[in-house]
Design a protein around this nucleic acid. Structure first.
Lengths: 217, 217
DNA sequence: CTTTTATGAATGAAGG
DNA sequence: CCTTCATTCATAAAAG
C-alpha cells in the first residue's frame, strides 16, 4: 500500500507539544514546534517523494512515447499527459532549499586572518575554538568553520589555471608551486557515466503543477 | 486548497524565527516553530505527494499491463532503455565529465534500505551480493558499495548535536569552552547535520512502490 | 527580473 | 574505522 508513514516525526512533535504545550508568537498566534532534525527529516521525505514522482513520470513518458507509435486511446492516458509536461519542464527554483550560512564581514575577517597565519592546520580542536569565538559575531557552527577552511584551502590551491597555452601535452605537471603536492593518477577504474536523474527537488510552487496534480483526484 | 507551496511556510517560518529567535524545550533543546496552519499545509503537501505517488504507480501498472498485451513482440526493448533516453537528454552534457560513481536514485534507495536494516556490518560477501544486485540498476563496483557504506556510517555518526547549519544563536554567551572537551574524542569536532531518522521508512518500505521503482531501472 | 559569479555544503574516494 | 582531499551541486550575492 502506498501508505505514507510520517508518524515518526509526528509523534515526536506531539511529545514536544505536550512538553511545552502551545507557544505563542509575538502576536499571540499558536504554533507548533519542531526540532531541526524533524525539519530535516521532512525535507528529505519530500525530496524522496519528488524523486519517486519524477522517476515514475520518466517511466510514463517513455512508455507513452513508445505507445505513440502504436497509437492509443486509453482513458487513463489523458491524465498522464496532463501532469507529465509540467512536471518535466520544471527546472525552476528548488523548493527543498536549506538556507546556507553566510559569514559576516567580521567573521570572514577573522577566518582569513587565521588562514593566512600559516597555521595551516584547521585541526579539529581549533575548529571548536574558532567557532566559539566567531559565534559572538553572528550565528555560526563548527561545521561552517570546517567547511570554510576546507573550501578555502581547496580553492586557493586551484589557482594554477591558464598555464597550458601551447605545449599543453608535453609535460604533465600536476604539481606547480605547492611544496607538498602529491598527485594521484586519476585512474578511471570502476566508474560509469550514468544518466543520473536530477530529481532532488520537486516544484511545488508551480501553479500548473498543483492544479494538474489535483486533477489526479 | 490545491495550493501546494513550500515557500510560503518556509518564509513565514523564517520570519517567526527572527521574531522569537530560538525557543527551548524543557530540556533545553532548540527547536523550530510553526503555526498550526503551516503544519497543516505541510501535512497536506506530504499527503498529496503520497496520493500522487500511489496514482502514478497505479497508472504505471495500467499502462504496463496494457503494454504487455499490445506490445509483447518487442522483446528487446527494455524499460530501462526507454526511460534512459529522456533522462540523458534532459540531463545535458554529462557524457564526458562524470568521473566518479554517482549512485542512481534506485541504487540509493536500495543502499539506504540495507543500511538501516541494522545489518551494520556489510561483509565482503554481502558487498558482492549488493553490488551484483545494484548492477542491474546501473554500473557499480564492489568498491563503490564498500565506500558508500564506509562514508554512510562515518557521516551518520555526526548527527548527534543537531541544530547545526541554521539558526544556532543564543548559546553564544555560554561559549566558555572548558578544556575538558577533549575527554572523549576530540577528533569529532565538526558536526555535520544528518537526517536524524530514516526518511526512507516513509515510503520506500511500501512494497508496491518499491517494486515499481525497481522496475524503473 | 534574468544571468553570472562566488562560495557554502555534500559526497565519492584515498590514506593511515 | 576515521580523517582528508577533490569534485560537484546549489544558492546567496552580485552584475546586467
Amino acid at each position: 500500500e502506498g501508505e505514507v508513514r510520517m508518524m515518526e516525526w509526528e509523534n515526536q512533535e506531539q511529545q514536544q507539544q505536550q512538553q511545552q504545550q502551545e507557544q505563542t508568537t509575538g502576536g499571540g498566534l499558536y504554533v507548533k514546534v519542531m526540532t531541526d532534525e524533524q525539519l530535516e527529516l521532512l525535507r528529505r521525505q519530500i525530496s524522496d517523494y519528488a524523486t519517486i514522482c519524477e522517476q515514475l513520470v520518466e517511466l510514463h513518458k517513455a512508455i507513452t512515447a513508445q505507445q505513440d507509435l502504436a497509437d492509443l486511446a486509453v482513458s487513463g492516458m489523458r491524465l498522464g499527459n496532463l501532469y507529465c509536461d509540467p512536471l518535466m519542464t520544471s527546472a525552476g527554483p528548488k523548493l527543498t532549499s536549506r538556507q546556507r550560512w553566510t559569514p559576516t564581514p567580521v567573521q570572514l575577517q577573522v577566518l582569513e586572518r587565521i588562514f593566512d597565519q600559516g597555521n595551516g592546520t584547521p585541526s579539529k580542536q581549533k575548529i571548536k575554538e574558532i567557532a566559539s569565538e566567531l559565534m559572538q559575531h553572528g550565528q555560526i557552527s563548527e561545521t561552517n568553520v570546517y567547511n570554510w577552511f576546507q573550501n578555502r584551502r581547496a580553492r586557493s590551491k586551484r589557482k594554477q589555471v591558464g598555464v597550458v597555452s601551447n605545449n599543453a601535452e608535453s609535460e604533465v605537471e600536476t604539481e606547480v608551486e605547492s611544496p607538498k603536492e602529491k598527485k594521484a593518477k586519476p585512474e578511471n577504474i570502476h566508474s560509469h557515466d550514468e544518466p543520473a536523474a536530477r530529481a532532488e527537488d520537486l516544484c511545488f510552487q508551480s501553479p500548473e503543477i498543483s492544479s494538474e496534480l489535483h486533477s489526479l483526484d
